[in-house]
């Protein structure tokens, strides 16, 4: 019974993984086919300062796209707990970004951020503020791409947390209220701890998601300006496919590094965060 899945796994997971390791230890001819064995050469190249910058960018991108999206969604979900008219419509509205593909959302943001004809600069202009170079100023581009990513992830986070909130037993909340807990106290002592499985899930999944992000960077900045948004995945793409480059060896070596980073991130999250998760 297990065999079919083992075969599928072997073909689509272990085989590519093995192939990546193999490629990462070889050079390439001009067509991109593996040539001579080069040992750890591609890994040694990564010790340069340039790759350090890529790793730092990846870390910043992950941090500033995961944390605001999860905390922001939590805040909105807690607010939506209030029994006001039209709360269902609001919930749907907040979850709407989930319906956009990364490509569509990125194109929308590209229009918003456009230096000459963009909506963002148009709004600033009508307030009498000089235009901001959203995607061409190295210190603003990364936050701008992160903001777009937060918007894209917001809907999904809202959906997951809303489902979590509605699964909280009314008796528990009722009991807490009888004991006099309201507002902030109720949220911090009852709702958030009971949401911890969902929060943990979101942190793990969005971290992996952020580490793999490609579409928004490709469409908005192509890794620029001055490498300010070149994350690890984008660097892999550039080595392997962009600008007529077919350096699959170096790209594969970076892919192996990405795998190691993702595994360790997840391991750390399970080791540290999960201890605080309250499963019902």
């Amino acid at each position: 019974m297990l065999m079919p899945s083992v075969v599928v796994f072997a073909l689509f997971v272990f085989w590519p993984l093995g192939r990546t390791l193999y490629l990462s230890l070889h050079g390439n001819d001009i067509f991109g086919a593996p040539s001579a064995y080069v040992g750890g050469e591609h890994y040694r190249e990564m010790l340069s300062g340039e790759f350090g910058k890529v790793l730092a960018t990846t870390a910043l991108f992950t941090l500033f796209s995961v944390v605001p999206a999860v905390l922001g969604a939590l805040f909105v979900v807690l607010l939506l707990e209030a029994h006001i008219r039209g709360v269902r419509a609001l919930r749907t509205a907040f979850a709407l970004p989930f319906a956009f593909s990364v490509a569509t959302a990125s194109v929308i943001f590209a229009v918003i951020y456009n230096p000459a004809i963009g909506v963002a600069n148009g709004l600033l202009g009508s307030l009498g503020i000089d235009r901001v170079n959203w995607l061409t100023d190295p210190s603003i581009a990364l936050p701008a791409v992160c903001a777009a990513t937060v918007w894209m992830n917001f809907g999904y986070n809202i959906l997951v947390l809303s489902a979590g909130v509605s699964a909280i037993s009314p008796e528990v909340v009722e009991a807490a209220r009888l004991d006099g807990a309201t507002g902030w106290r109720l949220a911090s002592r009852i709702t958030v701890p009971l949401l911890s499985p969902q929060l943990f899930f979101l942190v793990v999944v969005s971290t992996i998601h952020a580490l793999q992000s490609f579409g928004q960077i490709h469409i908005l900045t192509k890794g620029g300006p001055d490498q300010a948004t070149t994350t690890l995945v984008y660097s892999i793409y550039e080595k392997a496919f962009a600008f007529g480059s077919s350096d699959f060896g170096a790209a594969s070596a970076q892919a192996v590094v990405l795998l190691v980073i993702m595994l360790s991130c997840t391991a750390v999250q399970f080791g540290i965060l999960e201890r605080r998760v309250h499963y019902r």
Binding site: P115, A116, I117, N133, T136, T221, K222, G224, P225
Partner: peptide
Amino acid sequence: ATNTGRKTDDAQAAFKAGTV
């Protein structure tokens, strides 16, 4: 001079919009 980045589309848009 305005810096519209590397995308030729964006520099073209700036000229077409009459801002350059």
